[in-house]
Write a protein that binds this DNA or RNA. Structure first.
Lengths: 194, 194
DNA sequence: TTCTTGTATTCAATTTTTTGAATACAAAAA
DNA sequence: TTTTTGTATTCAAAAAATTGAATACAAGAA
């Protein structure tokens, strides 16, 4: 599970409260890779603290629960380094649209086209978002220190990912529209005409 | 969860035993998208049968447990169609290497380079695999019936995915090697030289 | 003959993830 | 003034995925 190590990685940059860690997942890193819910973050932080990988400083807040500022410990940093030094497994593409390739013929063609058009737009928007994230790095690429270069590179990974989606949607749409089989199913929903 | 609907999609093409469904996940579809374990498949098939989405014909086999050939039911097909007609959520990129972008500076540069080189090779191999899967379709693209066109298109999705990985690895490797910060950390592992 | 690989299914336990809700207050907007 | 948004944390339950093992036999390789 990468959640543990992702949180350690956030904390290796700077101490954060649980809320702020959750925000990282909702925004920056989350928009590039994946999102973890607040509950997941808080639960993981509690475990991490029990294991001695992080500590927290409780900031008393009048009238409500303490705010906890978490920092990574020596042990936590070592744990993170050990994990980073291990070879990584390529992630699976767990993509619902893939099922369309297996059983798309059960569904009317216009519905498939609409769905791909919808996805095209979605990914184009996500592409703009990650491109915006990269702006501060992309400009002075040649002078970036290592830390920022790595950040730039993972954002580039996300950019390429979204670009490949947009390009695929265009290809798929064109291929379906050019397909000789397209007329067979055009009216599948309404019931066989003629 | 897409597991349920992926299995229904397999069965919408032809009846299969649990073992054969598991094999689909291990090979064809699995190499494009994601793999489900045998146990997961058997468990899901049992649930699907209880829900009335599939039925099975038990083939008695001398001296061992019956082989069960599962087929999709009317209800199961409707369930699958309903699911396919719903808008799909883009899948999150749950990629361990992403963490490298957050905390790569903790690790010596040569280790990062080695890891990206390793990944480049891995994805190049996976690319070849999915390209091989596409061969039968790519040749007579213009005459493909819809069912095969859809199959071709999801394989194309997988191809583009792997291509974008290979291209990114090349970009990342070049960028790291060109980085002015590269010398600062080169000997991080051995301890500060000079 | 023995070992390995492939076919074929099931059980159990654990871990991980998701979903939904509750609590509490500050600040800004309507 | 009331509502919404944002900050901040916790609990509980359910669903899903992973890990490990056991059973059973056929076929081919060593």
């Amino acid at each position: 599970m990468a959640l543990k190590h992702t949180i350690l990685a956030f904390l290796s940059r700077q101490p954060l409260s649980g809320y702020e860690v959750a925000k990282e997942f909702a925004e920056g890193f989350g928009s590039c890779f994946w999102k973890a819910s607040q509950q997941q973050v808080y639960a993981e932080l509690t475990k991490l603290e029990q294991q001695g990988n992080v500590t927290y400083e409780a900031i008393p807040q009048p009238g409500r629960l303490d705010k906890k500022i978490y920092s990574i410990t020596e042990q936590g940093q070592q744990e993170l380094i050990d994990w980073l030094m291990q070879p990584s497994e390529p992630a699976a593409i767990r993509e619902d649209l893939g099922v369309m390739g297996l059983a798309g013929h059960l569904v009317p063609v216009p519905a498939v086209i609409r769905e791909i058009e919808r996805r095209r737009q979605l990914h184009a928007e996500m592409l703009q978002q990650v491109q915006a994230l990269d702006e501060q790095f992309a400009q002075n690429l040649a002078t970036l220190e290592l830390k920022d270069l790595y950040m730039h590179l993972i954002i580039r990974r996300a950019i390429r990912y979204q670009e490949s989606w947009v390009a695929w949607c265009d290809e798929a749409l064109a291929a379906i529209q050019a397909s000789p089989g397209i007329d067979d199913d055009r009216d599948a929903l309404k019931g066989r005409s003629t």
